[in-house]
Design a protein around this nucleic acid. Structure first.
Lengths: 206, 206
DNA sequence: TAGATTGTTAATCGATTAACAATC
DNA sequence: TAGATTGTTAATCGATTAACAATC
């Protein structure tokens, strides 16, 4: 009930709850229960109630949860009632795919800066963005106040670029480089690596 | 020591160990310790030793681990001493980015099939692949014996396509659709959703 | 040998689940 | 009211860490 310090593993499930609820809303469902939501996510009803109880009492006994109300609560908790600007660092294969990807914008995230250190690429356009010189990261991040970076540089450069981003004021990094980043306390890193997931799955295959 | 049934959370860390070890090898390091490996990964030395002990005794007291030997052991455990063929299902923004992405091939994974249900796309090339009609998934998956699919179709179609893939003999799915897939026991699903990771991080930002 | 580091056991810690009174 | 479902507590389960004898 009190907001002492919610385990990070709980926070990690909230976006999934939100995603399922938004889908329910799309399907015209106005009310749900921890049981129904849990079945859609492969999560136990008890866990969902426990997780939500860290933040308040959002349901009604006998009735369950208002989909719309719970969506609003989760969006508020996750700080999603605003547009978040992103910096894209590294415009190679993967970076340019992300730049073209439409999925971010209509979910509250917008790439506003793109950097690369390849002179061939600097000044070129990618979508509506102009690729800027990585050397200008410090001043451009500070000017724009962007807080989140997507890192898509080669592994060999990732740590050095990370240090630069943190120095410039970046607070959260979505890391696509296949390497563990070392950051100061308070800087948040999440990793995405499809190869690791594939290698995890092949363990179970012959 | 015995191979009773290793927790999935342990399996999930093995590819990270492997990744760090391959990087060490690249740097010319021939011997390491659980402490050193742990520091590179932000994991405790005790956990690394415990995880490895599920599979055998790979180190020497006083010395540590041979990087080369441990790489070989992990590759064997994870079934990585072969090429794995992948089917790409859904060739939209994201799917075509994955098709063009070079990162898979030199890591032991190779996309050999690409499907879409858009008549505009069927027959077109994407890299060295020809996009085939999703209606032919059952026969083509069976013919080729592909066991792993990457799913990049819209959320609304994802479950239906999944059922079809499973029916056709797919055993593992790397799911990029923002929805929880329901699959029979023994079918492995891993999810990748950058939006969820971003939303996780914004909780900690103002 | 002395120093270092393993593999493993026992202790701790944290997360999940079960159960149920409260109540809509 | 009767039925359903919440929020919460206590019990269970599993994962991580600490400690250390074994030994290279």
């Amino acid at each position: 009930m009190a907001e002492q310090s919610v385990p990070d593993i709980v926070i990690g499930r909230l976006p999934r709850y939100l995603q399922a609820l938004e889908r329910m809303r799309l399907e015209g469902i106005t009310t749900t229960s921890s049981l129904e939501l849990g079945q859609r996510l492969g999560i136990s009803a008890a866990q969902i109630r426990k997780d939500l109880s860290h933040f308040g009492e959002f349901g009604k006994q006998g009735t369950g949860y208002s989909v719309e109300f719970l969506i609003e609560q989760l969006r508020a908790i996750l700080n999603l009632n605003r547009m978040w600007d992103l910096a894209l660092v590294g415009v190679g294969d993967l970076g340019s795919a992300l730049a073209r990807y439409q999925g971010f914008t209509n979910r509250g995230f917008r790439i506003v800066l793109a950097f690369d250190n390849d002179p061939q690429k600097i000044g070129k356009r990618i979508g509506h963005l102009v690729i800027e010189d990585s050397a200008t990261i410090p001043e451009r991040i500070r000017q724009t106040g962007v807080k989140i970076a997507m890192l898509t540089v080669p592994a060999a450069e990732a740590q050095k670029v990370t240090d630069c981003l943190v120095e410039a004021g970046i607070r959260a990094i979505l890391n696509y480089a296949p390497i563990h980043l070392v950051v100061p306390p308070g800087i948040i890193v999440e990793n995405i690596d499809p190869i690791l997931k594939l290698q995890h799955m092949t363990y179970y295959l012959d």
